[in-house]
């Protein structure tokens, strides 16, 4: 799966304009609150059929960093 495909998933899950979701976008800027971020991470795992744990997201702030983590799980 390409990074652009994962971004497409994120756009759908977050229900935001595609232009807002780039590799440098800050994740917390894309959601209304922390619960929405949890919801998005859970839904992303369902969509990609991967499992993330808390340590995987340590220090993850941007979409690009999240894509790195997902890509590693998918590899």
């Amino acid at each position: 799966m390409q990074r652009t495909d994962i971004i497409q998933h994120l756009v759908q899950l977050l229900n935001v304009d595609a232009g807002r979701v780039t590799e440098t976008s800050i994740l917390t800027d894309l959601v209304v609150d922390s619960f929405a971020l949890i919801e998005m991470v859970i839904a992303l795992q369902e969509a990609l059929n991967i499992t993330l744990v808390q340590e995987d997201l340590d220090g993850v702030k941007t979409v690009g960093q999240l894509l790195d983590v997902c890509a590693a799980k998918l590899a």
């Binding site: 922390s34 795992q45 808390q54 997201l57 340590d58």
Partner: peptide
């Protein structure tokens, strides 16, 4: 909790 323990990322953590 989120501030003290970090964000849960999967259903087991939640």
């Amino acid at each position: 909790y989120l501030e003290a323990a970090g964000m849960p990322t999967n259903i087991m953590e939640i």
